[in-house]
Design a protein around this nucleic acid. Structure first.
Lengths: 225, 225
DNA sequence: GTTTAAATTGACAAGATGTCAAATTCTGGG
DNA sequence: CCCAGAATTTGACATCTTGTCAATTTAAAC
């Protein structure tokens, strides 16, 4: 899905013995494209195998030749999304340079990708609610980020760039912040303006991790009146 | 749902002309209790009208005498939850006293309630994915918090307790942080330990809103090596 | 061109939903 | 105590969606 939106699934088209492209691969790609088309303008709950295959012109049973069910199809979409997202957020995770600058870069990359693929992200989350196996896939996806963020925080803590709190709960919380703020903002059209979203996420991440001064509970200078 | 868990739906039981309780009310309550019982140990997707009514001993069609569909039932559960949550988070919203202390109180109240009713919260979110009308209810619910938090932030900004950023995007982001961190932690058993969750949320909210020192991008004292 | 494997189809059984008319059970007035 | 009317409950039905299968059509290799 590194291409720009709805159509053409080069990624899924395996090379053919001859220079030609197999019918099967073309059919599979057509189904995936039809799915994207639906997801872009309708919630996941409105996509049935029937409505999906109607878009393609093939009969309904063809679907089952290529996918186990709709959630299996969503898994493919999620895998593509995962590549794009890890690509674009790599900077901070690798961590060479000013961590605040890197974090800012990673977040704005994330916002850009999710702005582009917001409806897919939303469909993935919706689909996870209705299928046990796919829910696990979605959790695994989020879990990878939880691990990566936890590691990054712990590394920076060892250098005293980040105060020494329990990293994992914060990592989990910040990832849920991202995922659901982005789904809320870009999950359906009309999508919100990405700028304020980006600023909000940056502010919260940076304040939580690198904001150096920690007000004490009851610190007098913050008491009203 | 101010009572402690699965059973007894006094709230839904209307007073009777005579001291007695109508059969209808009892049936309705039995259905709601059965729903809670299911939600506590199974994901929402496994609850069908059939499985639900099997628990009650009534026939499946009785369900439709009392609710339009499962989402209509979930709406009732959400409404109860909403009361409990607004109850317990009121402190910071009203805002008389040290705002950091108040915020901390509100958050720990929220954690307590969600620890108690986590599976319901999760079921509500899952249910929202499968029904248009109920999704709107869930959004309205979150929206009320978005409004309340935005107001509170703006009020504190006017007193220079909080820096003058665009309040609404931050409010939305922080509410998604809460909702989905809590669903993740307490939405299914075994629930996580509430203490670290509470600490993580407090840290993030307080740092984002009242953390006074804001590191600049590229500030040299944070560059590695 | 024929053969063999892949791709596609239509028909089917199972499970869930929401509706309805009919049957049963309550309730209050005589 | 009994009965009429209302409230409650039931079983059967039509519809939709899903996933499977055997049969048929189409494409590729020899």
């Amino acid at each position: 899905m590194s291409n720009s939106g709805q159509f053409s699934f080069r990624k899924h088209v395996a090379p053919q013995p001859s220079g030609n492209i197999g019918k099967a691969e073309r059919t599979r790609a057509a189904i995936l494209n039809a799915a994207l088309g639906i997801i872009w303008s309708h919630p996941f709950r409105d996509m049935t195998v029937g409505s999906l295959m109607a878009e393609t012109g093939f009969s309904r049973s063809v679907f089952y030749q290529y996918f186990d069910d709709l959630h299996d199809l969503m898994k493919t979409l999620l895998e593509d999304l995962q590549v794009d997202i890890f690509d674009v957020t790599g900077a901070w995770f690798e961590g060479v340079g000013d961590p605040i600058v890197l974090l800012d870069e990673s977040l704005s990359g994330l916002v850009t990708v999710c702005y582009k693929f917001g409806p897919i992200l939303r469909a993935v989350d919706d689909a996870a609610a209705t299928d046990e196996r796919f829910e696990k896939d979605w959790r695994r996806f989020l879990g990878k980020f939880d691990d990566a963020v936890t590691s990054r925080i712990e590394a920076d803590q060892q250098q005293d760039l980040i105060p020494g709190f329990d990293a994992r709960p914060i990592a989990i919380a910040l990832n849920r912040l991202d995922a659901y703020t982005l789904i809320n903002a870009f999950g359906q059209r009309p999508r919100k303006n990405p700028k304020p979203v980006n600023e909000a996420l940056s502010r919260i991440w940076i304040a939580s991790l690198y904001g150096s001064e920690w007000p004490e509970k009851g610190s007098s200078n913050l008491v009203r009146k």
